[in-house]
Design a protein around this nucleic acid. Sequence first.
DNA 1: TTTACTGCAAACATTTTGCAGATGT
DNA 2: ACATCTGCAAAATGTTTGCAGTAAA
Lengths: 143, 143
Amino acid sequence: MVTADRILATFSSLGLRSTAQRGAIADWLSLASTGGRDFSAEEAWRELSAGDRPIGRATVFRALDALESDGLVDRIELADGSRRYRVCGGNEHHHHIVCVACGRVADVRSCLSPQFAGQIASETGFTLERHSIELFGRCDGCQ
Amino acid sequence: MVTADRILATFSSLGLRSTAQRGAIADWLSLASTGGRDFSAEEAWRELSAGDRPIGRATVFRALDALESDGLVDRIELADGSRRYRVCGGNEHHHHIVCVACGRVADVRSCLSPQFAGQIASETGFTLERHSIELFGRCDGCQ
DNA sequence: TTTACTGCAAACATTTTGCAGATGT
DNA sequence: ACATCTGCAAAATGTTTGCAGTAAA
């Protein structure tokens, strides 16, 4: 769970000013984080704008970009090509598993085994630099 | 390497008629397959249309959809969200590694270790159904 | 008072859709 | 003949950009 203050602090550490809009974004993201919720940029913008005081679409996109570059939020590219975000608090390297029934997302710490890179090298001649894994399954509630 | 005939046969096995356009698409894809090349739908359309006889954009998109549903071509969702295709001949489950320097793509047969699913289950409570892995590294020529 | 931020609306890139006419079976 | 395909152009989607005005520092 990531507090609004921490998000605000991240903005500031990126050299970005503290504005009312970023405040609203921080609040909203903190809530999303508490719920373990993932969302699209559009979705975030729509919900933020539904509130008392609307906010520009571009503002939300730009904020999300900034936070993602910092690592505070993760961008998840689903297998169908849709792009989603998730507040992961800049934790160390991890992956995500998406429930095919209810859409819930959980963090996964397990990762490629160390010998995997060696296997790749001998199989393809490539050296491995980065990887992204998207997992799909069923959460405990949906099995 | 996948022949144009095989692609045509795939169309037909999907209950799709054999048309001049699908013929041109089969030829082009077969060539791409020989070169181990990956491409976006737009790219395929542009090159196909550059030839003697232009072809409709939607036609190419629809053909690619059909072939992908059959598994003859793979859709690769890159980490930046861009979507690419690659003729993989309906081979069994595999992944892709993309060279960060030259963009070359290779097939990777290595996969998640068998105990991975168990690890996931104990860690998250999810059962694993599917996964997609995108790997990024450097090919032998670019190291 | 300076510089960054915001909102807007337009641009953008890519994909999908509806439909009338062409074409394969 | 009849159902499917095609091409077109329009709509849709989701994101980015340029710019003039607003607000933080």
